[in-house]
Design a protein around this nucleic acid. Structure first.
Length: 399
RNA sequence: GGUGAGAUACUCAAGCGGCCAACGAGGGCAGACUGUAAAUCUGCUGGUUUUCACCUUCGGAGGUUCGAAUCCUCCUCUCACCA
C-alpha cells in the first residue's frame, strides 16, 4: 500500500527531499490511521488560478487520498514584502478587505480540486502579527547572510551589484517560519521555491519543533508559448475558471512538443499509457492532433464536465477545421449607415479604426464569409456576420 | 554627502536642430502554408465619421528658434563611481 501510494505521489514531481520521511508518514497513516500536514503557500495578490498552479494543487489533492491534511497558507503578511523570486516589482500594499476577498476567490477555485473537508485555509498574518519585532529579530538570528547568498538569484544579483533589499532576505525566513507555526510535515512548491522550502526545514530545527518537514518540488509548467513559465502577467496561461470553449482552444494551440509535458504533469493517465500514445504518434499511427484533443478533453472535463468538453470539441472542429461559423456569437445592434472600420471598433473586434483599416488592407476582415476589400465600405441596413482574423466573430444588426 | 551617466512607443534599444509617428530587435496582430499547431516566409504594429489630410506622442514644467525627441534652465526619478 505504502509503496503504491508513494509511487503515485512521486509521479511528475521534480524532487523529493527526505523521501524517507514521506514513507514514514504514509506508513503511519496506514498502520495507525494518523494524518499528517502538507503545506503550500499562496500569494494573496493573484486570485486567478491557472493550470500552472493546479500542478501543485492536484498533487495535494492526491495526497489527501493518502491521509494528508492540506494547510493552504494565504501569504497575506509575506505578500506585503513580495517574493523576490524572479524579478518582481515592489508590491502594492493590500488592505484587509481585498485580501479576504481574494481568499474567498481562492476557495471557490481551489475546491474544484481539493477536498474541503481535508483542507485548512490559514492566513500567515495570524502568527506574524503576534510575533512582534523582538520575535522577528530572533527569527533573523537563525540564519546568516552568507547562507542566504547561496540562493541562486541572490548570488547573481549580489555578484552583478544589483541591489538586494533587506526585506527580500526576510521573505524566505518568513515563509519558512510558516512551517514552524503550522508544524507542517511536508511542504510543496515549484522548483523555483526550493530554497524557501528548505528554509522551513532549517527553521523547524532551529525552533525545536520536533520534526523537519519533507519537501516536494513540482516542475514549473510552461505557458502557451512553450518558453516562459505559465503566469498571468505574461498572458500565456489557461485559467481554471475559463469557459470550456476557451480552455479547449488554448490547449489545442500548444505545440506538439509541449503537449507531452502537459500530459506528464496535468493528465491523470498512467505514465505508461502516455508513453504508448507518444509511441503511436511517433510511428504515425496516431495523428498528433488526436492526441492533443484527448488531453484537451480530459482537462476541460475536469473543470467543467464531459458534456461541455464534448461540445467544446465539436465547436472547435466546426470553427477551425471546417471553417464554419461558431454557434454562438455576440450580437450587436448599430444604426445605419455605418463605416465598416467604425463598426468593428465599436463592437470591440478592433481596438481602433486605424487598426481596423490596417486589417482590412491585409484581408483579415470578412463580412458574411467574404473578404472585405473596400476599407471605405458603408454598412447598410441588414444583418451581417463580421469576422476579424480566425478567431474573432460577431453578429451585427444594422438598423 | 561628492562626482558622473541616463530617462524614447508593450519591452529592449537607435536617433543628438528640419528628410521623425521616430532605425533595429523581441513580443503582439494579420496573411500564406498547416492540424486554429510548431517551424518558415510576408505585411502591419500612435490616434482621428474616412488617411497622398489632420491631431497627439520621445520623464515633467518652462525657454531659445521660422522649426526641438534633439539646444538651454529648473524639477522629478533611476543608475554607476567615490566617500
Amino acid at each position: 500500500m505504502v509503496q503504491k501510494a508513494l509511487k503515485e505521489i512521486k509521479r511528475g514531481v521534480a524532487e523529493i527531499i527526505d523521501e524517507e520521511r514521506v514513507t514514514e508518514l504514509l506508513k503511519n497513516y496506514y498502520e495507525n490511521g494518523e494524518n499528517y500536514y502538507i503545506k503550500a503557500g499562496f500569494d494573496p495578490t493573484a486570485p486567478d488560478l491557472h493550470l500552472g498552479h493546479t500542478v501543485l494543487i492536484q498533487k495535494m489533492a492526491l495526497m489527501q487520498k493518502y491521509g494528508a491534511r492540506v494547510q493552504f497558507v494565504i501569504g497575506d503578511f509575506t505578500g506585503m514584502i513580495g517574493d523576490p523570486t524572479g524579478k518582481n516589482e515592489t508590491r502594492k500594499k493590500l488592505d484587509r478587505e481585498t485580501v479576504l476577498k481574494n481568499a474567498k476567490t481562492y476557495e471557490e477555485q481551489v475546491f474544484k480540486i481539493l477536498d474541503p473537508k481535508k483542507t485548512d485555509i490559514v492566513f500567515n498574518s495570524t502568527w506574524f502579527t503576534e510575533m512582534g519585532s523582538i520575535g522577528l529579530v530572533e527569527l533573523t538570528t537563525t540564519f546568516n547572510v552568507a547562507r542566504m547568498l547561496e540562493r541562486e538569484d541572490f548570488e547573481k544579483r549580489f555578484k552583478s551589484n544589483t541591489p538586494i533589499s533587506i526585506s527580500e532576505f526576510l521573505y524566505p525566513l518568513l515563509q519558512g517560519y510558516d512551517s514552524v507555526a503550522l508544524k507542517s510535515d511536508i511542504e510543496l512548491g515549484g522548483t523555483d521555491q526550493t530554497f524557501n522550502l528548505l528554509m522551513g526545514r532549517h527553521l523547524q530545527r532551529a525552533y525545536n519543533v520536533g520534526k523537519e518537514q519533507a519537501v516536494i518540488t513540482m516542475p514549473l509548467l510552461e505557458g502557451l508559448d512553450g518558453v516562459n513559465k505559465m503566469s498571468k502577467s505574461l498572458g500565456n496561461y489557461i485559467g481554471i475558471t475559463e469557459s470550456a470553449d476557451d480552455m479547449f482552444g488554448k490547449l489545442m494551440s500548444i505545440s506538439d512538443e509541449l503537449m507531452w509535458k502537459y500530459y506528464e504533469v496535468l493528465s491523470d493517465k498512467d505514465l505508461e499509457e502516455i508513453k504508448e500514445l507518444q509511441k503511436s504518434v511517433d510511428e504515425g499511427s496516431l495523428h498528433p492532433k488526436k492526441a492533443k484533443e484527448m488531453l484537451a478533453l480530459e482537462i476541460v472535463e475536469r473543470y467543467h464536465d464531459s458534456n461541455k468538453a464534448q461540445k467544446a470539441k465539436v465547436e472547435f472542429d466546426k470553427v477551425h477545421s471546417k471553417k464554419e461559423l461558431p454557434s454562438d456569437m455576440n450580437e450587436y445592434a448599430l444604426s445605419a449607415p455605418i463605416w465598416i472600420a467604425k463598426a468593428l471598433n465599436e463592437i470591440g473586434l478592433e481596438s481602433s479604426t486605424s487598426q481596423a483599416r490596417r486589417d482590412i488592407k491585409q484581408g483579415a476582415v470578412k463580412i458574411d464569409g467574404q473578404k472585405c476589400q473596400d476599407e471605405q465600405l458603408q454598412l447598410q441596413k441588414g444583418e451581417y456576420i463580421l469576422q476579424v482574423g480566425k478567431r474573432k466573430f460577431a453578429k451585427v444588426k444594422v438598423v
